[in-house]
Design a protein around this nucleic acid. Structure first.
Lengths: 251, 251
DNA sequence: CAAACACTTCGGCGAAGATCGTAGTGTTTC
DNA sequence: GAAACACTACGATCTTCGCCGAAGTGTTTG
């Protein structure tokens, strides 16, 4: 099998702390400039430039020139998927090996992406809002309809907290589902609302979100996304997690 | 986020060609000795010893001493999952980025694992055989019932080809499905039978298996596993693959 | 008990590559 | 047009780490 050398090449790229930091920073789908990435990874701009060139050449990053700066993002959800694989293995380490894929599964189910929700649930919510014509989405933009505004008003979601300057509503490609969820002010408002009403809560030291029993009921009632929610019929950690509030598994 | 350094540590381990070769060789769930791994990765035994120690310390490999030799295998399905992530990214490289997860998807659907079948289909077959009490499975062993023997006789599967010394029937954890499929002589006989009757065929340069139209029909009729098989309703590469024999996508 | 075997430890060699200072190109701002 | 800015290219230094020869420990075989 000659697959060994190939994966070594990619792994070696990720194997440098500086480059790994850059990739981690881009995990949530953001696009960042070379300078920002240099700062985040803790190396000089010259060094970062070299690293970014290598990552782009290898097809791990996609670049876009705008003006005098270059914006980098992960080249595809595949790359994010690979990084998540590494994260899961890395976080467990030598200790307690058994059943630790729970972390990964929980992440895929519901997590934060910057300031909004991602994962199966977030994609289902976006689907539902589009299906009901509350939101219009295309490749790189989104728009709230009048019906959508009424819907959120009735729900008590405050869409005005966002600063004037930020994008109001946009799609954000979900790397575990390979389909878009909602970002922008609307996405942030939904997450804020869900946290305030105890539909979900943060899991310590993780981007994963725990869906509470209240959340299961309310998300189903509000968005009609039973399919994406844990149920009694759904065996496995997600279901057992959501049955009791206290059962927080370190991820 | 301090996840950067952690994933770098793991990635750096995989980033060496020698170690990557070792891990690749173990991808299908086999257990190999240190000497075998040294030969397969093309380094001297001393070097291999060091590499294996590092991989074990990091929790990527599990070791078992038996007599004067040490048997290594991947520590968990998580590791295999991570390696697959790297493989998928590595095989695509800079070129044609779009829709290349087909390879991974095909692998998850049906592939060989040593000399038997793995993937969704294999897990479904194992489920069905257990459900019908043709086979009894527990953690680390399996047993063919009398009813099971009759079933395979009627089907024309020859279970006697296996050498006397090999394990007759045992479960083998499927890393893409996280549930067991059948290994041992019975597992091998099923794959042999499927290949001889053109239910599946090897895809060139890959461990992936292509389920032929005949296979779709016969596997459904024989094992009642329609759910795991590609159908017309199932969009995506697997369905398009199975519709015509000629449509072999390089993986 | 000796010999063969499987594996590990030690030590020195050598190549790969990460780092940053200096200097350069292209872009924006004033 | 000059200055500030974002990024890139080159080169010297230095650390890291893979590599294998030699020697050592534990196990099996005859």
């Amino acid at each position: 099998m000659d697959t060994g050398p190939k994966i070594a090449q990619v792994a070696a790229l990720v194997g440098d702390p500086g480059r790994a930091n850059m990739l981690s920073a881009l995990m949530d789908g953001r696009t960042l400039t070379a300078t920002e990435l240099a700062y985040l990874s803790g190396v000089a701009p010259q060094t970062a430039s070299g690293h970014l060139a290598k990552l782009s050449d290898a097809g791990l990053l996609a670049v876009e020139r705008r003006g005098r700066r270059r914006y980098f993002r992960l080249a595809s959800p595949l790359v994010a998927r690979m990084l998540e694989g590494l994260m899961v293995v890395a976080q467990e380490g030598p200790a307690r090996q058994r059943n630790l894929w729970r972390g990964g599964e929980t992440l895929r189910h519901a997590r934060t992406c910057y300031d909004h929700m991602a994962g199966r649930i977030a994609v289902a919510i976006a689907d539902r809002l589009v299906q009901q014509s509350f939101i219009l989405l295309d490749e790189d933009g989104g728009q709230l309809t009048d019906a959508g505004r009424s819907f959120f008003d009735a729900l008590g979601v405050d869409l005005c907290l966002a600063s004037k300057r930020r994008v109001f509503c946009r799609p954000c490609l979900d790397w575990s589902e390979r389909r878009p969820h909602l970002a922008g002010a609307v996405g942030a408002a939904i997450l804020r609302h869900a946290l305030e009403h105890d539909w979900v809560e943060h899991i310590r030291d993780s981007r994963a979100l725990l869906v509470t029993p209240v959340g299961v009921r309310e998300l189903a009632a509000t968005f009609g996304i039973e399919g994406a929610l844990p149920t009694d019929a759904c065996k496995g950690p997600v279901a057992s997690l959501s049955r009791g509030r206290a059962a927080v598994i370190p991820v």
